[in-house]
Amino acid sequence: MNNILSNRIRQGYRTVEFPSDNIQLPEAYRGRPILNPNASDEDVQKVASLCPADAINPDERTLDMGKCLFCGKCQSIKQNFIRFTRDYRMFVLKREDLIIKDTLKEPDTSSLKTIKKLFGKSVYMREVCAGGCNACDADINVLNTPVYDLSRFGIKFVASPRHADGLVVTGPITKNMELALMKTYDATPSPKFVVAVGTCAISGGIFRENEEVVGGVDKILPVDLYIPGCPPHPFTNLYAFVKFFK
């Protein structure tokens, strides 16, 4: 017992103040990308052909953050088109807003009056992993650790879709999970919402052309919130949830 208490004292208070301007992610972290509209065509072409995710449309000079893996491959060559900031704050309400010309603009969530009224004080979510590699799930799971402490905002993950107000979906939706996902969605009482977390859930990611996957949640369900990343940093998820519901 003494040991438990002394350990508790040594552990101290670990929960990060949020939202806060003091959260600094390490230099190596690749967050919200910024495109340079004045970059040379050659640079754009170079980046487009290098990108493993084919996230760049060289004709339109756009980057699809719903396909980007944030792998940093484009940062390994000399180019003047894309750079990544350390800003973890990324989410959108519409799929097309993820296709950026310069950078991601934060959506105005004050207009989401119904969502905030219905779910703002207390919201229960059910997570469904549908073919993801477990990274997105693991980084959603850590929101329950003392550091992020999601439940202080009245947001909680629950075991049953029947107890949930909405779904959080990860993975490219394998054909083998499609039915289970639809059943889970149907079991969730209305009004409900769907959140797509991670590149795979948004666009199917690198699996999008495989016949074994559906290739993105919004192919089969209406999505209300998109959180990009491969996987999104826990702070990215936390920020998006808080902005969306609060």
Partner: peptide, 29 residues
């Protein structure tokens, strides 16, 4: 089988540049 994404098939047909992220996505942990 619920997580089956067809990785082994994709590994022999995809472009070489996709190989590293594909391998990293076999198991995220």
């Amino acid at each position: 089988g619920y997580q089956h994404r067809g990785i082994e098939k994709q590994l022999i047909t995809c472009k070489k540049k996709i190989l590293p992220p594909l391998i990293e996505s076999v198991a995220g942990d």
